[in-house]
Design a protein around this nucleic acid. Structure first.
Length: 304
DNA sequence: AACCTGAACAACCGCGGTGTT
DNA sequence: AAACACCGCGGTTGTTCAGGT
């Protein structure tokens, strides 16, 4: 009757992942690909439940994740999509391919919600475009609390303190960065026995907008001020050796398993949303267009 | 210097939908 | 068809650290 249990709850380790565990998990997924999470702790010997393995991979270890420092553009997208979709973080994350739903959710709860409250309390207007102006008031990276964003130099100093590894804004990422050193060359040495996983989470994968699917690492705004030319992703060039492969390599190995026709349909969808985000006058028309696309496209906000 | 408070974020928990037997 | 487990999502909690007192 039914499947066997996914994992024995007894002896399951909890809490932060160690670099060693990350190495084991990344190595296993490199060999076997993501998915079939039930088998991961069994085959790797990790004392983690399958759920924890999936979460660790999806939210932290998988390639293509951009961490820290949300840009004003990203904030604008999140704010607007949240207003449209509600707290459907996975759906929102589908429009920010480099961000995880968990990241967006955390960012919303710790930054944006407060900003919105502050903005709403200081303004009687509830206009979307007005709210948007709060978040997209400049083109630079928005990094911290509303108060801090008013003093970017102070904010940067605070970040420098919190994230001594300049290109890796997470202190934990710093430790994971050490993993990358251990893994240095690991991915490249192999002959790609299995295609690299998609740059997105497994969830709702078939509804991803597939922005710049040929090179997900170039999607949206680059982080500024790293001096690498590739912004923050430089950190992940090391952390996620998948990313060292050119985009063409991804596609040669099966790409991201995104139906080509969906890609063709999804790109204009994102353009519409971007138009909507930054063109108040077009907002109503864009919403109508989105609705029109609902029959032929993947993902459409339905909560109007 | 020690303690307190709040911010930030990683990870866990519980639930619902879906797939498998 | 029913029972059960898997998977993914959203809410919540726990931990760490910086800044203030």
């Amino acid at each position: 009757m039914g499947r066997p249990p996914c994992c024995d709850k007894v002896g399951i380790k909890k809490g932060p992942w160690t670099p060693e565990e990350d190495i084991i998990l990344v190595s296993y997924i490199r060999e076997n690909g993501p998915g079939n999470w039930r088998s991961v702790p069994i085959n790797t010997g990790l004392m983690r439940c399958s759920k924890s393995c999936r979460l660790r991979w999806t939210n932290y270890l998988r390639p293509g994740i951009k961490r820290g420092n949300f840009t004003a553009h990203e904030e604008g997208i999140i704010v607007h999509l949240q207003s449209v979709l509600g707290n459907r973080w996975a759906a929102i994350a589908s429009y920010l391919p480099q961000r995880t739903d968990n990241d967006i959710k955390n960012y919303w709860n710790t930054h944006l919600k407060k900003k919105l409250l502050a903005a709403n309390s200081s303004s009687s207007s509830s206009s979307i475009s007005k709210r948007h102006a709060v978040f997209a008031d400049d083109s630079t990276t928005v990094v911290s609390s509303g108060a801090a964003s008013n003093k970017p130099e102070v904010t940067q100093m605070a970040i420098a303190r919190r994230y001594p590894f300049a290109d890796c804004p997470s202190s934990y990422a710093s430790s994971v960065n050490n993993i990358s050193k251990l893994l240095d060359g690991f991915m490249m040495k192999t002959t790609s026995p299995s295609p690299p996983p998609p740059p997105y989470g497994d969830a709702a994968y078939d509804v991803k907008p597939a922005v710049e699917v040929g090179n997900p690492l170039t999607s949206f705004d680059r982080m500024s001020g790293t001096g690498t030319g590739d912004g923050e992703m430089a950190c992940y060039d090391v952390l996620h050796p998948y990313q060292q492969q050119p985009a063409s390599s991804f596609m040669e190995h099966g790409g991201y398993d995104v139906d080509e026709s969906k890609q063709l349909n999804q790109a204009p969808l994102l353009s519409l949303i971007e138009d909507w985000l930054f063109d108040e006058a077009a907002a109503e028309q864009v919403v109508a267009d989105l609705m029109d696309m609902s029959d032929s496209c993947c993902f459409v906000p339905m909560m109007f």
